[in-house]
């Protein structure tokens, strides 16, 4: 599984980007995005802001309290997006892409695609074992977000940090990497 983590500022601008792979079940913590995936990830993240905003401002599903952790909110093809929103309207977005082995027919198009369909293919239905709404996944992502939030608050307390500035602190990056290794 590969992850792309992005912090979005109040003007839809990226403040921080980080890419990593899973460290669970023998993973080496290196992401497996292909070149084209890599260029598409920002688009996908950006597009899910539509949903984030809807959840953010829409009618509350939890009575009274406004949760920071919005859980799994969006999906594009085989990319799942989870969100955490801070009090300052900064969004943490985590894009999860299950490993390619679990994605049959990911290449799509071409003669192969047609043949697959003629065989009554239901390629899309075999999405591996990844389930973005399973409690374990949700919990892991939540813990990850929580640690990042902790580090984030400490980072932006820096008096020289202005609203919607990019975060370049290596310490912060290090902490995100540690959290990723620990939980994902």
């Amino acid at each position: 599984m590969s992850y792309y983590f992005c912090i979005i500022g109040t003007k839809d601008n990226p403040l921080f980007e980080h890419e990593f792979g899973t460290s669970r079940s023998g993973g080496d913590g290196v992401s497996r995005f292909s070149q084209s995936d890599r260029s598409l990830n920002p688009f996908i993240i950006h597009s899910s802001l539509d949903i984030v905003e809807e959840v953010q401002w829409g009618p509350s599903s939890t009575s009274g309290s406004a949760p920071m952790y919005l859980k799994h909110i969006d999906k594009y093809a085989h990319n799942y997006i989870s969100c955490w929103i801070t009090g300052g309207n900064v969004k943490f977005l985590l894009l999860t892409r299950p490993s390619d082995a679990a994605l049959p027919g990911a290449v799509g198009g071409g003669a192969g695609g047609v043949r697959g369909s003629l065989a009554g293919g239901r390629g899309g239905m075999l999405q591996g074992t990844y389930n973005p709404t399973s409690p374990a996944t949700e919990e892991a992502v939540k813990n990850f977000f929580f640690d990042v939030y902790d580090a984030w608050v400490k980072t932006i307390m820096n008096p020289f940090y202005g609203l919607d500035d990019r975060v370049t602190s290596p310490v912060f990056r290090q902490r995100v990497a540690t959290a990723a290794k620990k939980y994902l």
Binding site: A77, G105, G108, G109, G110, G113, V114, G116, S117, G121, R122, G123, G124, M125
Partner: peptide, 15 residues
């Protein structure tokens, strides 16, 4: 629409 694409019901042009 994304279901159509997932099921591979169309060829490259249709995609």
């Amino acid at each position: 629409v994304s279901r159509i694409l997932e099921l591979n019901l169309v060829g490259p042009v249709g995609r």
